[in-house]
Design a protein around this nucleic acid. Structure first.
Length: 502
DNA sequence: ACACTAATAT
DNA sequence: AATATTAGTG
């Protein structure tokens, strides 16, 4: 990492290696754009597994990792934990959620910073300091005191509550910032070892050769003859090995019929690795499409909700995720192809509970985490998103709507900073992946209580171009619509019960 | 001093 | 959960 002087005489790193992770492609794209503006060298992926692979490969040395918090495969905290256990790389969390508990959790797990979405350039300009600071100024390791966390929280809230116009100038860091610039790159702590399958085989070989009596750390070490491996490594592994054997025997006594199964082909000790492997046990032909109930079955909102939760357990269609940066966004939906929408004048806008929204005449599952299945019972042509939600703390929701459904609309008036990322980025002229449209707001949105939406005429929309044509048939085929009465009933039901949190 | 293991820490 | 470190023991 190279430090250069900028025009103000400050030092700034050029070409710092950043690994950016965000489950949502659009968010990721935005994140990468910001990072590149900082002149960092960015590698990006939506896939946490892939991120870990990249990090473990060590073909490239990364200076810092930036990850979002809400993910389906491995959530941000888990990822943070894995990274901080395995290697010595500062991790910065990015999230639309400003819950104190989340921030606390991140910091406690070792995150160096917690930024709110959409991240600002200025914030990203500052993250390199985490790289430099690595371990330097917290020798008494529990320097993450309550005060520091509190301070962080209040800073976050204060900054975000300010009117967006004034960019914060108070981000001056204390003087010690640039004191040890060169240490950063050389201070990598020896990384934690990983017992690969191969190593473990050697270990097993050694044990077999020695027999149970002689199998002690030092001798195993000698027989394995692996450079760099320490006696402690082996001892630790041996301890784990023996523990597992013990457990095995314990369960064996209960069901006496089977042979002990302690070798490399067994599931026992190769649990070493399974922790980080993706565990999608779902057969590939068992796709949510096949589970979509007909509209009659969905007459109750509870069933709808259950269906939704159920479908979330399945992996998305190939190509819907696992984007590595550089791929185009997904899921465009040409509006013309869909069934006519029912008249929804009885229904109040907006959403009934998080995760289900009233969308252009359908009760659609439009928001939610980034892998909300594209095969929801009814896929919206347009997600009408009230501006109040734009201000909210689930910034990625609206981005999801766009990246999954291809088309999202918002009211013509301005909305808050939470979604400037969408507005500015997605709707930017020159984005050739999409087409900008004006759409009429339907009448049923003219509820006087919904001041943010009523009667403003045209809404703006962005539609992404088709690139997964094979999905269209799926959408078409499984799309359901509901009568007014059905929908009203659903709304009632959900208002009465405690709405489930998604 | 050394190796081992159980317990504990990260 | 996996690995590292420590502390007690022979």
């Amino acid at each position: 990492m190279l430090l250069k002087e900028n025009s103000h005489g400050d030092q700034f790193p050029v070409g710092m290696q950043v690994l950016a992770i965000d489950a949502n492609f659009v968010c990721l794209k935005y994140l990468v754009t910001v990072l590149q503006q900082c002149r960092y060298k960015v590698t990006a992926t939506t896939d946490a597994e892939e991120a870990l692979q990249i990090l473990r490969n060590k073909n490239e040395e990364f200076d810092i990792v930036i990850t979002d918090v809400v993910r389906e495969d491995i959530d941000g905290f888990k990822l943070l934990q894995i990274i901080s256990l395995e290697m010595d790389i500062p991790v910065v969390m990015v999230s639309a959620n400003d819950d104190v508990s989340n921030i606390m959790r991140s910091i406690k797990h070792g995150a160096r910073d917690y930024l709110l979405k959409p991240v600002r350039l200025q914030e990203m300009m500052n993250i390199w300091q985490h790289v430099i600071r690595k371990n330097l100024d917290n020798p008494e390791k529990s320097s993450i005191t309550k005060e520091i966390i509190d301070q962080k929280i209040s800073t976050l809230k204060r900054t975000r509550n300010q009117s967006t116009k004034e960019e914060d100038e108070s981000t001056k860091e204390e003087g010690e910032t640039n004191t040890h610039p060169d240490i950063a790159s050389s201070s990598r702590k020896k990384s934690r070892m990983t017992w690969t399958q191969e190593l473990h085989e050697k270990f097993l070989d050694a044990i077999q050769e020695l027999g149970n009596e002689e199998a002690v750390p030092n001798t195993i070490l000698k027989i394995m003859n692996v450079p760099g491996l320490t006696r402690e490594n082996v001892a630790s592994h041996l301890q784990k090995y023996r523990n597992i054997l013990k457990k095995q025997k314990a369960t064996m006594n209960q069901q006496k019929n089977r042979e002990p199964n302690l070798n490399r082909n067994s599931t026992n000790m190769h649990g070493c690795h399974t922790a980080y492997q993706s565990t999608s046990a779902v057969p590939s032909n068992f796709h949510p499409v096949n589970l979509v109930p007909n509209s009659e079955e969905l007459a109750s909102s509870k069933q709808l909700y259950q269906y939704y939760m159920q479908s979330r357990q399945y992996p998305m269609e190939q190509g819907m995720h696992n984007h590595v940066y550089g791929n185009p966004p997904s899921t465009p939906l040409p509006t013309e192809n869909y069934l006519p929408v029912p008249d929804l004048k009885l229904l109040k806008f907006p959403s009934v509970f998080p995760g289900i929204k009233v969308v252009d005449g359908c009760l659609g599952i439009s928001s939610g985490p980034s892998n909300t299945p594209p095969f929801s019972p009814s896929i919206p042509d347009v997600c009408y998103i009230p501006s109040t939600q734009m201000l909210g703390d689930n910034a990625s929701t609206q981005i999801d709507a766009i990246s999954q459904h291809g088309l999202a609309a918002w009211p013509p008036q301005d909305f808050g900073p939470g979604q400037h990322a969408v507005k500015n980025f997605v709707n930017e002229p020159g984005d050739t992946n999409c087409e900008r449209k004006n759409i009429d707001l339907p009448d049923y949105m003219q509820d006087p209580n919904l001041t943010d939406l009523k009667g403003k005429g045209k809404a703006k929309a962005v539609q992404y171009f088709p690139e997964h044509p094979h999905m269209e048939s799926g959408f078409h085929q499984y799309r359901n619509s509901f009568t007014d009465d059905e929908l009203t009933m659903m709304v009632k039901e959900f208002n009465d019960d405690d709405p489930p949190k998604l």
